[in-house]
């Protein structure tokens, strides 16, 4: 509705305000304070004064080679998100919207990994990936694949966590795509069938184009989720071995809550904020190309 009368405009405002007020109060105001504090040095004791240090916290962060390494790990997470998670989640969404006899069973089991607490999932995978005796190495040996110490090898640790992450959240993202698939009108497929389109062709030429909005939602959630990822890394490797799987968010946590350098922690936070918003807006732009 492009033109609205005053009454409609007021209603629109009234619709936005309650949620927005809540969000601004509980999220945005603390966020602004956190940006403010990133220019100060503070030891996290309320009676200790904050000392203005300008860009020193940022300098400290950017000169730290571990930080750049952790950004590389974020890149792994994003790559996993788009190359592994997105196709799998989309396929799962297709599956639960097709007429398989086990549809109900599939729907429930696919969601299982997110229902279990992450601590349990993390621990289980530590065992499944355990060298020589874990299920995955056993299967790999059976297939004559090279032996890999998934969580113990610094080069593999982050990749392993990324893959476990995709396994965990595939069912979760399946829901997002599923909501999109059910919104596609049946008639489109009917006419597709009359034209003699195969299953793949229907997916390629009807489902995928109709799902643009949902791929956009997925992309934004994936990017922001990867940038701030904390839990699974913390549980499965603790950032190890020897800091190989450290993420910006685990570094932020350590700086602020372990070493009590809240200024440095906030500087990392602000960097993540800027990077995340920029990437999300960029994604939005890419998806909006060719829109009205």
């Amino acid at each position: 509705m492009i033109v609205g009368n005053t009454k409609q405009r007021r209603w629109d405002l009234a619709f936005i305000i309650p949620g927005l007020v809540l969000f601004v109060f509980f999220i945005i105001i603390p966020l602004c304070q956190s940006i403010f504090q990133s220019f100060y040095s503070w030891n996290g004791i309320s009676i200790s004064p904050m000392k203005y240090v300008g860009l020193k916290n940022y300098k400290y962060v950017f000169e730290n080679q571990d930080f750049w390494h952790s950004l590389g790990n974020v890149a792994w997470f994003m790559a996993g998100g788009f190359i592994v998670l997105m196709p799998i989640a989309f396929l799962l969404a297709l599956i639960i919207n097709k007429q398989y006899r086990l549809k109900r069973f599939f729907k429930t089991t696919y969601f299982m990994p997110v229902v279990l607490p992450l601590t349990a999932v993390g621990l289980m995978w530590v065992y499944l990936l355990f060298p020589a005796v874990g299920l995955v190495p056993v299967v790999m040996e059976w297939l004559h694949l090279p032996e890999i110490n998934f969580l113990g090898d610094p080069d593999w640790a982050i990749i392993s966590v990324v893959l476990v992450n995709e396994w965990t959240y595939a069912g979760f993202n399946m829901l997002i795509f599923s909501a999109g698939i059910v919104a596609i009108p049946e008639e489109l497929f009917e006419s597709g069938k009359i034209d003699g389109a195969s299953g793949w062709q229907q997916t390629r030429f009807i489902t995928l184009p109709m799902m643009k909005e949902y791929f956009k939602v997925f992309s934004i959630l994936c990017i922001t989720g990867c940038i701030k990822h904390f839990n699974l890394v913390f549980i499965m490797t603790g950032g190890g071995p020897n800091r190989a799987s450290e993420m910006p968010a685990t570094m932020l946590y350590n700086e602020a809550f372990v070493y009590k350098n809240f200024g440095v922690g906030n500087a990392i936070g602000v960097f993540l904020l800027v990077a995340g918003v920029t990437l999300s807006l960029l994604t939005n732009k890419i998806f909006s190309r060719g829109d009205d």
Binding site: G152, D153, G239, G240, P241, N254, Y259
Partner: peptide, 26 residues
């Protein structure tokens, strides 16, 4: 105050193929 974490993390390096020199450098 960072030494506790620093030393423990560096020690992990010795168990993933790192040398003593690398550990000391860390």
């Amino acid at each position: 105050t960072k030494m506790l974490d620093a030393v423990r993390n560096a020690l992990q390096g010795l168990f993933v193929g790192g040398t003593v020199d690398e550990c000391v450098q860390d």
